[in-house]
Design a protein around this nucleic acid. Structure first.
Lengths: 361, 361
DNA sequence: TTCGACAGTGAATCTAGAC
DNA sequence: TGTCTAGATTCACTGTCGA
C-alpha cells in the first residue's frame, strides 16, 4: 500500500484498479461522470438533413443492464472505500443509467442528500418530434453513509443565488465555444465534456479549500481544472491515453485563484417566460373560455393546449388575432380580453398576476 | 374474467388485486403516484401499511429496500399486463424511491421515453440549511416496450409552450388554495395531492379523447378529475376508504369540457392529405412553374400530372428533391419554393392555404 | 468597425402507415 | 411478421464571411 496520495495528478488506467491503490478513507469528495450506456440504434438526421454526431464510442458499449450494473457496483464500491466517513459523492447521468446508479448507491449504503437537475439552457432539440426535448441531466449527491457529517457550504450557495436558498434545479449552458477542447482538425476532443460552471458549483457547494477531490472518469479534466482553480487538491483517473493527455495539459495550464479571492460568481437569473398555455393549465383561463377583442368585434375559444379556435382557424393567440384582423402580426397578450364581472380584462393583466404569485413563492 | 371494464369508476381496494381483475391489454395510459414510504409522524409504514418495527429510521436498511422493490415489481408487472402494446405509463416520485422504480421499469421491459422534471415554483424551503432546496419531483414516462408505437401529441405540446418544443423540465406550482381538498377541520386531506395543471399536461401529451386512463393509486383523484374534464375514460383504484370517498365525490362534481372544446392541435399527419397534384389542378401551381430550393441552388419544372422534371430526372416532389441533394429522403413540401413578388414561398404554405379555403367552403 | 446572413452543432435510446 | 415509401421534423448559441 502506498503511503503517499498521488495529489494533483491524473493517473492513466482503469479506475477500479487505480482506486485499489489508494488508501481507504482518504478523499473528501468524489465527482464521477461514468459512461451513460446510451443505446443508439441508427443514424439521426436534423430536419436540414445534416447528421447528428452521436456518442458511439466503445467506452459506452455494454452488453446488457446486468453488465452495466456489475460495472457500476464495482467502481462505486471502490469509491466508497476510498472516501472518508464524512465525504460525499456526486454522480451525473441521464435516464439511461441514472436510475441504476441511484439504486446501487442506496444498496451500497450511501445516503442520498439531493438529486440535482442540470437544466440545459441550450439543449439539442428532439428532431423527430417523438418525445419531449431531453433538456436536462441528473446528478445524485450522496454522503458515504447515513451518519456522515458531510460538508455543505450553505451560505456560499445562498450568496451565489441572489440570497435565496439554492434549489435542486440548476440552469446552466452546455460546454461550447472556447471552453470546448478540440483536436488539430477542430473536432471536439471528447463527446461529452462537462461545462466548467457545473463543476464550479459542485465543488463550491460540497468541498473546502485544500480538500481532496477524486474524479475516477476524468475525461478531459473539467473537474481537475475547477479543483485547481478553486484551490482544492485533485486525484484523477482516466483510461484513455488521449483524454488523459489533454486533461494533464489542461490541468497544468489552469491557474489557481489568489488566496481569499472571491469565488462566488452569481447564478444566471432565470428569466420568467410565461407561455399562454400556462395560464390555461393553471386554471386562470380554463379551456372553453371565450375571448374577444377590446371592441367585441371578434371572438375565439380557448383549447386545452392553449391554442385559440375561431371557426376553422386554430393557432396561437397571436396567430388567430392576426388572421381575424387581416394583420401581418398581432400581440395576442394585449389584443385578447376576458370578460370578468362585465369588465374586459386583457390577457396581459392575468399574466402579470401569475408572475406576481411566482415571485412571492 | 370480467368482460366489461369498470369505466369511469374508482374501485376501493388493493391495486394489485384490483388490476388482476382487469383484462390484459385494455388500457391506453397509466398514471401512478405510488407511496414513497417517507417517514411521516415518526412512523415508517410498509407498502401494505404495516408498521416497520423498531426505531423510526429503518428506511436505509437493505431489508426495507428489498420490500419496497418487491412491492414495486408487483404493481408494475400487473400494470404492464393491463396495458395495450402501444400504451405508455407515467410514474412520479422523489429521490427516495424514483431510482428503484426506474430500475425496475427497465428490468420489466418498459422502454423509457423521457424523465420529466416537475420544477415546483413554490417549493418548501430547506429549514435546516443542510441541503439544496428540494424543489422538484421526477416523472418517468415509458412505453410498454421498445417497439411500442406510443402516442405523443407533439403539436399540442408545442402549442402549449408558445410554439417551441416542450422540454423535459416543467415549471408548475404546488397544489394549493381552493384546489386543495380539505377535511371538516380545514386540514389537507392528502399529504401529496398533485396539482391539476400537472395531470392536465400529462394527459394532453400522451392520450387522446376517449382513451382509457388507469390510476392505481388514485388518492384524492386528480387524475380522475382531469381525465373527465378532458373527456378521457378513467379507471381508478384506491385502498384508503377516506381518499376513495373524496375522489369519487370530486369525480362526480367534475364537468367535462364540451365536445370540441376538449380538442387540441391535431398532428400534421392527421390533417387531410393534399396531393401535390391538386395544387397543380387547381391552378395554385400551374404546369410549367419553376420551383427552386431555399438557396436557389437547384430548380425543377412542374409537369401537368404533378411530377417535377429536372434534367433527366422526373418524379414526385420528394423524390426529385432527394435525388438533387443526394439525400436519402426529402420533404418536398418544405424543400421546394415558389417565387412570388421576389419572395420565396414554400409549397407547405400554399398547401395550408388550400386547406383553409376548403375548411371555409 | 459593425451588422446581418448563413452555416455549424450539442450524452439522442428520434416515423407511421400502407401493403 | 417484414418491406416500402411518403413525408414529418429543430433550439440556442457560436463562429465566419462579406458588405
Amino acid at each position: 500500500m502506498p503511503v503517499e496520495l498521488p495529489l494533483d495528478q491524473i493517473l492513466l488506467g482503469d479506475c477500479v484498479e487505480m482506486m485499489r491503490l489508494l488508501p481507504a478513507g482518504s478523499v473528501d469528495c468524489v465527482f464521477a461522470d461514468p459512461p451513460y450506456n446510451l443505446q443508439l440504434r441508427g443514424e439521426l438526421r436534423r430536419p436540414d438533413d445534416s447528421l447528428v454526431d452521436g456518442v458511439d464510442d466503445d467506452w459506452d458499449k455494454f452488453g446488457d443492464f446486468a453488465e452495466y450494473d456489475r460495472f457500476t457496483r464495482e467502481w462505486l464500491s471502490e469509491a466508497r472505500r476510498v472516501m472518508r466517513k464524512d465525504a460525499t459523492i456526486w454522480v451525473i447521468g441521464s435516464y439511461h443509467n441514472i436510475f441504476r446508479i441511484g439504486t446501487i448507491l442506496q444498496d451500497l449504503g450511501f445516503w442520498i442528500l439531493n438529486d440535482v437537475i442540470w437544466r440545459k439552457s441550450n439543449p439539442m432539440p428532439n428532431f423527430r418530434g417523438r418525445r419531449f426535448t431531453n433538456a436536462h441531466e441528473t446528478m445524485i449527491w450522496a454522503a458515504r453513509g447515513k451518519n456522515s457529517r458531510y460538508r455543505f457550504n450553505y451560505a456560499a450557495m445562498k450568496a451565489l443565488n441572489d440570497d435565496v436558498q439554492m434549489r435542486s434545479d440548476w440552469l446552466l449552458p452546455l460546454c461550447t465555444g472556447g471552453e470546448r477542447l478540440r483536436n488539430a482538425h477542430g473536432l471536439k476532443l471528447h463527446p461529452t465534456q462537462k461545462p466548467e460552471s457545473l463543476l464550479h458549483r459542485v465543488l463550491l457547494a460540497s468541498t473546502g479549500i485544500d480538500d481532496i477531490v477524486l474524479d475516477p472518469f476524468t475525461g478531459t479534466g473539467t473537474t481537475a481544472a475547477m479543483a485547481k482553480r478553486l484551490r482544492r487538491r485533485f486525484i484523477g483517473i482516466e483510461r484513455h491515453p488521449d483524454y488523459a493527455e489533454a486533461a494533464i495539459g489542461r490541468f497544468r495550464r489552469e491557474r489557481p485563484l489568489a488566496e481569499g479571492e472571491a469565488v462566488a460568481t452569481p447564478a444566471k437569473r432565470d428569466v420568467p417566460r410565461v407561455p399562454f398555455g400556462s395560464l390555461v393549465e393553471q386554471g386562470l383561463v380554463p379551456p372553453g373560455t371565450r375571448l374577444c377583442d377590446k371592441s367585441r368585434r371578434v371572438s375565439a375559444t380557448v383549447s386545452p393546449d392553449g391554442t385559440l379556435v375561431a371557426g376553422s382557424r386554430r393557432g396561437s393567440i397571436h396567430q388567430v388575432g392576426a388572421q381575424l384582423t387581416n394583420a401581418p402580426s398581432c400581440n395576442g397578450w394585449t389584443f385578447w380580453h376576458l370578460e370578468q364581472e362585465g369588465q374586459l380584462m386583457p390577457l396581459d393583466t392575468l399574466r402579470d398576476r401569475l408572475l406576481a404569485v411566482r415571485a412571492e413563492g
